[in-house]
């Protein structure tokens, strides 16, 4: 589903991390771990194709990829429902917006502009996008950040459903929070030698 070979990125002629090899198959959950600044976000963006590697290759199976970055991609002036409706139109998703809103627990805020939401609510709104358009591959950058205990459980539930469908997920986490009851594999990002 996702293959990376000797993946490397240089910034100012210094490699960011040691070359990465990764093989993600359907139904697998991969955690990218490492201390702050190790290059987790950079690696996720490389895998998503937002950055071009200095050397090495990334190959993704054809089909949509869902990406959740530090910037959530919500428009502050649009309401929760409008943000999701735009994503639905963009991806051609068939799942109804209302059920996605309900699934992430934002029914009460559906007509609130995104700028008025709390950080956790914004995260939930972004997570609802994952429900709208089923993508076989999820690339999530710190999906647990800003979420309360209930939100963390929500992410775990979404991940479990994704793996059940045969989808795969690569996510970064700095190690404080880990999905409790899902089998996962770890890719520890190492400093360049």
């Amino acid at each position: 589903m996702l293959k990376a070979r000797k993946l490397q990125l240089e910034r100012h002629f210094e490699p960011v991390f040691a070359p990465v090899d990764l093989d993600v198959a359907g139904g697998e959950l991969w955690l990218l771990t490492g201390p702050n600044g190790a290059g987790k976000t950079t690696l996720i963006r490389l895998l998503a194709g937002l950055l071009r590697p200095t050397s090495g290759t990334v190959s993704r199976a054809p089909g949509p990829v869902a990406f959740l970055g530090h910037q959530l991609g919500l428009k502050d002036d649009l309401t929760v429902a409008e943000n999701l409706a735009f994503h639905q139109a963009l991806t051609g998703a068939e799942a109804p917006v209302e059920s996605a809103i309900a699934a992430v627990g934002l029914e009460g805020a559906r007509n609130q502009a995104a700028r008025t939401l709390s950080a956790g609510q914004r995260k939930r709104c972004a997570l609802a996008r994952l429900l709208l358009a089923p993508a076989p591959l999820w690339l999530l950058d710190e999906p647990y950040a800003n979420l309360d205990a209930e939100g963390v459980a929500l992410v775990d539930r979404l991940l479990a459903e994704q793996l059940d469908r045969g989808g795969a997920c690569v996510m970064s986490t700095h190690g404080a929070l880990r999905p409790p009851e899902l089998p996962w594999r770890e890719l520890a990002i190492e400093a360049p030698s």
């Binding site: 990829v65 869902a66 910037q71 991609g73």
Partner: peptide, 15 residues
Amino acid sequence: GDFEDGSLEQLVISG
């Protein structure tokens, strides 16, 4: 705006 709030990334990823 699209660059700062991540909408641009989503657009690129959407294929």
